[in-house]
Amino acid sequence: MSLALEFRSVSKTFRSKGRTVQALRDVSFTVSEGEVFGFVGPNGAGKSTTIKVMLDVIDDYDGEVRLYGVSAREAAARRGVAYVPEAPALYEQFTPLEILRMALDMYGIRRDDREAWCMQWLERFSVAEYAKRAVRQLSKGNVQRVALAHAMVVSPRLLVLDEPLSGLDPVGRKDVVDILANYKRDGGAIFLTSHVLHDVERIADRFGFIHRGELITTRAPHELVAERADRYLVRYQAAAALGEAASSIRSGEFEQELAQADLPAFIARLQDGGGRIVTVKPAMSLETVFFQVLEGALKPVAEVPGQG
């Protein structure tokens, strides 16, 4: 299976307020054909800079980036690549149908069934009924659907998606996840960022955790969960929380995460104080793992002294 995207020891610095801050620090990862790669991290971690580098919006960086074997610094690398930003900037005076037609024209795609092809994608994203309505008249969720249809209509080999499910209701999120799953099965590659870790967990084959410009780890979901399989989420009733890590669910009911080895002592302490267990379940969500990995990575920001 060939590689759709390669980052090799990529670093990027910016000058800010008289000093140089490293936005990316020796970042390396790959995305294969037919793979969904989730890229997650807190605000300011380097996700947007990574996308700008791969799309050649930023070209003054160290290291190497290749798309299907072609350097990202060459225009040819972006043939067959489609990008949907977090806040799509579609021409509001045009209709969804016109926007999809323009996408075909920009990519130099000639189809005898052009009209039907555009309508097919609007139908798949459930916005066909708005095909001839100005974009300015659409809701945020429907604008997001049009932006996704705009990306898919050109039959891309690589989809770059920044918060692709933003603004969608639960039905819309499921529809988009299903479409992306079909795209992946057909050999398409997806690089996506999202703050909604549950959505990433449903879609991605592997995850990259980035923090302060550094790629902390790149793993498959089952690997991350297996490494922390001895963690449990305990919900209990008591007069007061048993520890600072507990979160209050409602009056007299709390929840906190514990290692398996700590459970017996915790339960004994709870019962001695007149409390009781409500539920005990594995704490194996991607969100839990993410914050554990992030907590372990917290450290002072390394800066490169600026000149003058």
Results as ranks from 00 to 15, higher is better:
85 P>F: 15
141 G>R: 09
102 M>N: 00
123 E>M: 09
143 V>D: 04
219 R>C: 13
108 G>L: 13
176 V>D: 03
122 L>M: 08
132 K>P: 07
113 D>Q: 10
161 L>G: 15
185 R>C: 09
174 K>L: 15
88 P>A: 04
212 R>Q: 12
110 R>G: 01
138 L>M: 14
93 Q>F: 02
220 A>Y: 06
91 Y>R: 06
191 F>R: 00
117 W>Q: 04
190 I>H: 05
84 V>Y: 06
110 R>Y: 05
97 L>C: 02
205 D>N: 15
131 A>D: 01
152 M>V: 13
98 E>W: 14
134 A>I: 06
140 K>F: 08
90 L>Q: 01
125 F>K: 06
183 Y>V: 09
139 S>A: 12
101 R>M: 10
164 P>T: 13
166 S>M: 09
100 L>M: 13
139 S>D: 10
172 G>C: 09
178 D>N: 12
131 A>M: 03
194 S>W: 01
129 E>V: 12
120 Q>T: 02
192 L>V: 01
88 P>E: 06
191 F>A: 00
108 G>T: 12
130 Y>M: 11
143 V>A: 03
210 I>A: 03
149 A>F: 12
90 L>T: 01
185 R>F: 11
100 L>S: 04
112 D>I: 04
146 V>C: 04
198 H>Y: 07
132 K>A: 14
100 L>P: 01
158 L>T: 14
200 V>W: 00
197 L>F: 00
